[in-house]
Design a protein around this nucleic acid. Structure first.
Lengths: 347, 347
DNA sequence: CTGAAAGCGCTAACAA
DNA sequence: TTGTTAGCGCTTTCAG
């Protein structure tokens, strides 16, 4: 139990050496030539006294706090932020860093977000992670640039900050390919109406995959609605009303898929035998709890948090030049999570 | 944009005064007698130079960091942790504090949790919040006691730390009362099988409320299962198979309620006209997205986070003595969130 | 009304 | 092989 009142000096007098010696052995300074006996003695005494370094004083002196700031949008709205934080926290901990977290809102003014970053800067964090709630183009406070920074799950409108984002298109391809592999040839897509990268890129993945399989056009209908359960329900009702009924349905996200489940039930279609469904996001609360379990594409939130942290620390430690990576965002893949909502089509 | 390289000294020379004066005006030190002109000049120069205080140096000197440590269990597993963090962050920000967050696991060894707390102590946080993923009795690392601390959503096994927890029993009463108020007299309870406080207290609330209404015994059956969707489904199948069928069903949590929805559908019961249902937890992803929307009892995670932070800061600032509050946990109410799953019973 | 100077706990250049 | 000492940027006592 570290006693907050024990300092390096106390250890020094107790061990009968100077503070320098204590500092050197405790930090394992490479060029220090200290006898093994002294080293042991210092370590033992430090242990006995319950010495713990005062990281503030260390930081003041070395100009390194070992703290990373994380400004996260809407921490409580989805479990996504939690996964980013977890990825970041584990990566940080593994390298001896800690996280200072500030919550902000996607709708907050630029000024209030600037103030959030400012608070982090006053605490002299070594670097900053800026995480958004969903993949988009974001306008960032200018003071973000005054310390190494990386953007998680978005790209900077100004294009000047290293970013890591999910491979939306690849995820959509994986979803459609799973349907194709199961033997489906009439596959529809229920898309979001928001003009965000995911909307466009998932659609592109859907189209490209089917085109390559020779199945575009009427065999590949798309309906769009608000990306919530109700929107999914409505779009599914429409898309399933067509003659030459679909046997496979790819949904923009798990919530829309949840609506599609209800639409299917109302139409007397059982999943997966009458209709195979695949979602996106892997929101466990939904995907794992629907009946049957929803096969879906996972967003790599944990991985993005970890990747961003790794690279941020590399930059802080001079092992990487972030400006080189800032030209293009890094894209992390979205793997398919198989549950029970896909099977071969009837007959 | 604060320039990290500008210090109080730079402001002093630029303003032609001493650092003392700068410090006094910037901190609005009460006993300092400084002419309004000087004050203005200092403030303007500081602004122009983009001065921002170095909180590390301040902290080293004042022995106050203005940082609160938050160790949170399983941050990514549920949105609950997010709400606690949000409540804590907003309360902290309002009083000029920031949060250092460390994730831990409910199943982590005492030693690893001790190390997490130690990391916070080395950074000289002014106080520590320790948040668990669900309400239970938790064994805490002893070093938690070396700085003011409060427990969120659990009580300490040793009973020595101020804690804030949800009013499980009151929440259950609110749920049952809503059913009674709608006119139901045959009300069942689907409970969890885990031996945790929520299991016992929600059951007690259920029983007490019905007893007071003169409806105990056979009119108030209870079935228990694992507190997941599947368990809810199974328990609901059992409890709905009884003759003299229930018209009201209270579920241990929203996931079990989700299972109950499926059981009802299979039995041809429509919610709420044939069966009124109320859940617990208010997991929005589920409760708001079921059809019809699930009326449920909300856990006050945001409020617990905020309460804990308020009181922790009071203790840090000497306005409160936490040890006085440690005797009994503070209980925050669990309000009913009305959606569309309750109506009057048939006929 | 304002300034000099000590010191918070530590690291690191320099001396011995 | 080890010790002295000057700061890191700030607050605060004490003197003007």
């Amino acid at each position: 139990m570290s006693n907050k009142n024990i300092g390096i000096k106390d250890v020094a007098v107790a061990a009968g050496v100077s503070v320098t010696t204590v500092s050197h052995v405790l930090n394992e300074v490479s060029y220090a030539r200290i006898s093994p006996e002294t080293r042991d003695k210092v370590r033992i005494i430090a242990e006995q006294l319950g010495y713990g370094p005062n990281r503030l004083a260390q930081a003041l002196r070395t100009q390194r706090t070992g703290m990373l700031g994380l400004v996260s949008e809407d921490i409580a709205t989805t479990p996504h932020a939690g996964r980013i934080i977890l990825g970041a926290d584990e990566a940080a901990k593994a390298r001896g860093y800690n996280l200072m977290i500030i919550n902000t809102s996607g709708s907050a003014s630029l000024e209030s977000r600037r103030a959030d970053v400012e608070a982090l800067l006053e605490r002299r964090v070594d670097g900053i992670l800026y995480a958004t709630m969903y993949h988009r183009n974001v306008e960032l406070p200018a003071n973000l640039g005054s310390v190494p920074s990386v953007l998680v799950d978005s790209v900077a409108a100004a294009g000047n900050i290293t970013a890591v984002i999910p491979d939306e298109e690849g995820g959509a391809r994986a979803a459609v390919e799973a349907l194709l592999a199961a033997g489906h040839s009439r596959i529809g897509f229920i898309n979001n109406t928001d003009d965000v990268p995911a909307t466009r890129q998932r659609l592109r993945g859907f189209r490209a995959t089917l085109t390559e399989a020779g199945l575009d056009g009427a065999a590949a209908p798309v309906e769009s609605e608000v990306s919530e359960v109700q929107g999914g329900y409505e779009a599914a009702r429409r898309i399933l009303a067509r003659e030459d009924r679909l046997t496979g349905l790819f949904c923009y996200n798990d919530r829309m898929a949840m609506g599609a489940y209800r639409a299917a039930a109302e139409l007397g279609l059982v999943i997966p035998t009458d209709l195979s469904v695949v979602g996106f996001d892997d929101q466990e609360l939904i995907a794992a709890n629907l009946h049957p379990g929803l096969t879906t594409v996972a967003l790599p939130h944990y991985e993005m948090g970890a990747w961003a942290t790794e690279h941020l620390i590399d930059a802080v430690e001079g092992k990487t030049d972030l400006s080189l990576m800032a030209l293009h965002p890094t894209i992390l893949s979205c793997p398919l999570v198989r549950r029970d909502s896909i099977t071969a089509p009837r007959q």
